[in-house]
Write a protein that binds this DNA or RNA. Structure first.
Length: 563
RNA sequence: GCGCCUUUAACUCAGCUGGAUAGAGUAACUGCCUUCUAAGCAGUAAGCCAAUGGUUCGAAUCCAUUAAGGCGCGCCA
């Protein structure tokens, strides 16, 4: 039987329910429904391995003081044959439970049995999930916000995989619509400027150097062949030339960031196969649209949104949200994912209810769409905010960022905060004093463990005194603490998957590293009192290494064996 | 004006669907390498949990109001 916190917690839940059931049967407490109660892991270790507020939560229902109820429950608890050794009453009526020594040895054995799979759960078994993230505009380079979204989305997808979901990563390419028109205009102007400097770039077009480069490459290949053709032909040629290069660039840069997508989904396919048109038609057929000032509006307020919005402009061109609706309809209905997750910037928050309203109106299961809103990244340099501006061409791009700071650091750092918190990214700190970054602390722990194992294996070939290490020799507080935390990985992964929060995993990793460093400091492996103890500790080191390595694999961070 | 997010130590942030003396990392100060990696460990100092009311056995956590900051509210995406 695999030992982990999750199973112990489940077992405790049953034991408690049994005990209360007996009390009710014996008439010691009134026959009332048992109120919801919590089983938690106390922060203070003297409060046991688990604690429950059952007695306090049921005080009202049983009309008795919490401590009296706690005493009755403790008497009625049958711990024989369970993984618990004893129960104590504490504070205002908490019941604290202590695990048996043997349980801890089981944890270590289990990690080494499961190895690179330790931590995986089957919570999402049989369910398909899609995580869409970054989906940066292909008209220009990616910015720092995309760096956060990338680290977040990619780690989240990995967490879902570990939690048992059949998960895919997807990038949505906005290769149609107004942005592409603007892209075309920008390219066209740069192209024409080469032959006639008097041509001016509109204020709202893209002024970046990348546009000029594209134009120059185009000229190198085609020369003035497109100067005197109709504008449409020229624009199409330029876009057809530059856009695939940009998309390939996105793919290449993201790969450098260790992000590889399962799907690249083109918006243009939704136009070509008629899905976009169908959205408007279907909403109209169902009577959810109306005309006003020559535009087609969707009655979003009938589906819980704050206001109606335009689907088709007076000029006959649909707004950006129509292909988005078609796209999400495709995820939820055509491809029928059980879970579709979008990672979006917080500036999209008003847009989410509208999208969902339209999906609901189309009969799609909008509740299967979960949007993780990510707050802005504030870049700080010299104590001042660095403003991001795509137009100025001077914005810090993802590529520049990754040239400045190690990828390990970036991926870890962006996942140290919840998506929902504003992120202050100190460039000076990340660049100059990168050793302060917690990622090094975690990697150092891994390298240290490897070093210990390496040393012992080199020096004493006979380090294995028996096939089955005497793991119950591990009883120092630092050893127990370490094991307890190792045992928590599967719960932590489930929690991260449930709340869509990879920062739980970075916190877990940092805590694990910390507990290892403490263990290292007080429990020598090489100079253990007996060979048996040395072997037991060596085994624990290996389990800690494996656990640390697994969390770092989730975050796609290197596990260095030497530092 | 309306909506979303934020406000906890000097700085950056945790605090899990209300629970036991409010935590961590930086920065500051003090110890610890003639033994496995000191990128480490141990310790000290540092808080009116933005403010005020409310809900109850119990609130940093839930509710209301206020204040400060960020972001939205387009026939832009």
């Amino acid at each position: 039987m695999a030992n982990c916190i999750k199973l112990a917690s489940d077992e405790l839940n049953e034991l408690l329910l049994d005990a209360v059931g007996r009390l009710v049967a014996d008439g010691k407490v009134p026959s009332e429904p048992i109120p919801a109660f919590k089983i938690e892991i106390p922060a203070d270790k003297t409060h046991g391995d688990f604690a429950t507020n059952l007695a306090m939560a049921s005080a009202k229902a049983f009309r008795m003081p919490p401590r009296n109820i706690a005493a009755l429950i403790c008497d009625a608890l049958v711990l024989d044959g369970s993984c618990f050794e004893r129960a104590e009453i504490a504070g205002p009526g908490f019941i604290n439970l202590f695990l048996r020594r043997k349980w801890f040895s089981g944890v270590v054995e289990n990690v080494l049995l499961e190895n690179e799979n330790y931590g995986k759960t089957d919570t999402g078994k049989g369910k398909r999930a899609l995580v869409e993230f970054v989906s940066a505009n292909p008209t220009g380079p990616m910015h720092v916000g995309n760096a956060r979204g990338g680290a977040l989305g990619d780690s989240l997808a990995e967490i879902l995989l570990w939690a048992g979901y059949d998960t895919q990563r997807e990038f949505y390419i906005n290769d149609a619509g107004n942005q592409i028109e603007k892209f075309a205009t920008s390219l066209e102007v740069r192209y024409m400027q080469h032959f006639d400097p008097a041509v001016e770039m509109p204020e709202d077009a893209y002024h970046g150097a990348d546009i000029t480069e594209h134009a120059e490459c185009f000229i190198a290949e085609y020369g003035d062949r497109y100067v005197s053709v109709p504008s449409k032909e020229r624009r199409d040629a330029l876009v057809k030339f530059a856009l695939p290069k940009n998309v390939a660039g996105l793919e290449r840069d993201l790969k450098k960031y260790r992000i590889v997508y399962d799907n690249w989904f083109s918006e243009s396919t939704l136009h070509k196969n008629g899905s976009v048109k169908k959205v408007v038609e279907q909403l109209t057929d169902r009577g959810y649209t109306y005309e006003q000032d020559g535009a087609v509006w969707f009655k979003a307020t009938e589906f819980g949104a704050d206001k109606d919005f335009v689907l088709v402009r007076a000029n006959g061109i649909p707004t950006y949200i129509v292909p988005d609706i078609a796209y999400h309809y495709d995820k939820l209905v055509t491809r029928s994912y059980d879970k579709a997750i979008d990672i979006l910037g917080a500036d999209h928050h008003g847009y989410v209810p509208r999208l969902k309203a339209a999906l609901t109106a189309l009969g799609a299961p909008a509740e299967k769409l979960d949007v993780v809103l990510m707050q802005m990244v504030m870049l700080m340099r010299d104590g001042e905010v660095v403003k991001l501006s795509k137009r100025s061409g001077k914005a810090i791009t993802l590529v520049t960022l990754l040239e400045e700071i190690p990828i390990d650091a970036a991926r870890f750092f962006f996942n140290t905060r919840e998506a929902n918190s504003h992120f202050e990214f100190d460039l000076d700190l990340a660049v100059e004093k990168s050793s302060q970054n917690p990622v090094y602390y975690v990697q150092y722990a891994h390298a240290r463990i490897c070093s210990i194992i390496r040393n012992i294996k080199e020096e004493s070939a006979e380090c294995a005194v028996s096939d089955k290490p005497a793991l119950d020799l591990l009883d120092k507080p630092q050893e127990i603490e370490l094991i307890r935390h190792i045992a928590a990985l599967p719960v932590e992964i489930d929690a991260a998957a449930k709340t869509y929060d990879p920062s739980k995993i970075t916190k877990y990793a940092a805590e694990l590293a910390n507990l290892f460093h403490k263990f290292y400091d007080s429990c020598s492996v090489k100079y253990a009192e007996t060979p048996e103890l040395m072997q037991a500790r060596l085994t624990l080191c290996d389990a800690a290494r494996q656990t640390l390595c697994n969390t770092m694999r989730i975050l796609k961070i290197d596990c260095p064996e030497r530092m």
